[in-house]
């Protein structure tokens, strides 16, 4: 066995790669938060609850309609995204002229309602969601054997994140979006329907959260509390990365998952707090975040 600093390198690498699974979800969620924040200037506190809703909808589709994992990957984000569009049109859009804190408070209230209803419906214990047949078993990676489904989560989430980045950076719709982030009034003057753009952006961000939820269902089982457990860590991720850069938030998400996995091997008790400790360190040295622009 290869040794580094007295640790077996094999199990260390294995834990780190497993940490990447958490990192995949951090990346997807912080990406959605960053996209929404860029245009709407609100922190979507409901993001965790909508991620949970994605998982619940996919479970619901399977249990009551017999619709499996693969169609769910498309249907659940569309349904939850549509719910997001309704939320934005009926409530969030009324708050843009106010202090940004009200957006946070409103979405926090929405999160409480969604989670409370889910707990009412399903209780606090998790509902099992079977891994799809094609992704069962394990894959040999040379240094470790990894459950195929987890490998899929890491790869798929990476592909989704990078596609989102490409859409934002390289397409004309992405260019319009970035322009509206810089100066919405000017973009509106060019004839772009900015309110609709804002609504669709919120819907897409929410759909990303729901997609993460569908992918998380077989890993963590479907649980009404799964969203609030993860969202606070994602907030810390967002503070560490800074929301100025899309690529930055993706990178930070994956790296922090890796760091968590790493810590789980070296000092397991600290794995729950390592992200927060890093957040403190970053705030002390680079208050704007690793990829953020100084305000």
């Amino acid at each position: 066995m290869l040794m580094v600093l007295g640790y077996n390198i094999g199990p260390l690498l294995a834990q780190s790669v497993l940490g990447m699974v958490n990192g995949a979800f951090y990346a997807l969620l912080s990406l959605g938060l960053a996209v929404i924040f860029g245009l709407l200037n609100i922190i979507n506190f409901a993001h965790g609850a909508l991620y949970m809703l994605g998982a619940v909808v996919s479970w619901w589709l399977l249990t009551y309609l017999g619709i499996g994992y693969w169609p769910s990957l498309v249907i659940a984000p569309i349904l939850v995204g549509a719910f997001g569009v309704v939320l934005e049109r009926t409530m969030i859009s009324k708050l843009y002229k106010l202090d940004h804190l009200y957006g946070l408070l409103l979405t926090f209230g929405i999160a409480l309602i969604v989670e409370g209803l889910a707990r009412n419906e399903f209780g606090s214990s998790g509902l099992p969601y079977a891994v799809p047949a094609a992704l069962r078993g394990a894959t040999k990676l040379g240094f470790m054997i990894m459950p195929t489904y987890r490998l899929w989560v890491v790869v798929a989430s990476f592909v989704i994140c990078m596609s989102t980045w490409i859409v934002l950076e390289k397409t004309s719709i992405g260019a319009t979006l970035r322009a509206a982030t810089e100066n919405a009034a000017l973009v509106q003057a060019f004839g772009v329907n900015v309110p609709r753009l804002v609504t669709l952006t919120y819907g897409s961000g929410v759909a990303l959260a729901a997609l993460a939820g569908v992918m998380a269902a077989p890993v963590y089982s479907v649980n009404p509390n799964m969203g609030s457990d993860v969202i606070i860590v994602v907030f810390a991720v967002v503070v560490i990365g800074g929301m100025g850069s899309i690529l930055g938030s993706i990178l930070t998400g994956f790296s922090l998952g890796l760091l968590e996995g790493f810590t789980k091997f070296i000092y397991p008790e600290a794995s729950g707090v390592v992200v927060f400790v890093l957040m403190i360190a970053v705030l002390l040295t680079r208050p704007a975040g690793l990829f953020g622009k100084a305000s």
């Binding site: 409530m91 209230g109 309602i113």
Partner: peptide
């Protein structure tokens, strides 16, 4: 309790 609190939050803000 949670649901009611959420509803009060939304109502207050709106």
């Amino acid at each position: 309790v949670t649901i009611t609190q959420g509803i009060i939050f939304v109502t207050c803000v709106m």
